[in-house]
Design a protein around this nucleic acid. Structure first.
Lengths: 120, 120
DNA sequence: CCGAAATAATACGGAACCGAAACGATCCGG
DNA sequence: CCGGATCGTTTCGGTTCCGTATTATTTCGG
């Protein structure tokens, strides 16, 4: 049943990476990062700036307080940083950090490493 | 810089799938499922049974109450089920459910769909 | 200028989760 | 048969997060 093969491999990849994330815990990343927090983190580091609270809330389909709180948490972990926009001081511009960049990079390496189970 | 290409694509895949998971919310899956809960769910559905609380705790490197609570939550969502082991009534055997199988299957399809961005 | 609009943050009550420890139920070797 | 070991659950105090509603600050059109 070659049709079933691809989804199973995709799930296997997801499974192994997630397991690694959970087990690393003490490390910078994860510590049981929620799906929302991870989505925010990846958006900040993969999509072109600037990123705002409102923009992220819209993109994820969640309310603004969710973003604010996630930024509080990830800011405490030094994964992201906040700065007032001088052009429009109502806005907060979310900035990347060295630690956050390293964490995202490490996640990429992790996926690639486990991706070797996939054919081709 | 062809060296950077693969990790970036892997992260892009992860990003898009995670975004979909967060946005689906109301659906069966996610509702901001934690990394731990997802790891447990995938272990149950991808690795051969039987699965026990102690076994899962060991595999994930977390304490038993963490597993118990995650099973409570996911059981409430009907993603997994618990049953006493008749052979050894101290054990609890974690069982799959139709709803859980569908959710995992849907995740697999989601990854495959977004995986089309990856070359080859 | 000044009031409406927009932005992010905060307050609030409720729910979930954490780690550590204690607890009941069950098994099993001697 | 019984005492230790094993297993899953529960309890405890504390922390975090949720959604909704509200607040403070800033911008901008008329």
């Amino acid at each position: 049943m070659p049709v079933e093969l691809r989804p199973l491999e995709a799930l296997t990849l997801w499974h192994r990476v997630t397991l690694d994330l959970v087990r690393e815990d003490g490390q910078d990343l994860s510590h049981d990062l929620s799906a929302r927090q991870l989505a925010i983190l990846l958006t900040i580091y993969l999509e072109p700036p600037p990123h705002t609270v409102r923009g992220l809330a819209g993109k994820l389909g969640v309310t603004k307080p969710v973003i604010t709180r996630a930024l509080d948490t990830m800011g405490r972990l030094d994964l992201v940083a906040r700065r007032r926009d001088d052009a429009d001081r109502r806005n907060v511009v979310i900035q990347r950090t060295v630690k956050g960049a390293l964490a995202v990079e490490r996640l990429g390496d992790l996926i690639v490493a486990h991706g070797r189970v996939l054919p081709r």
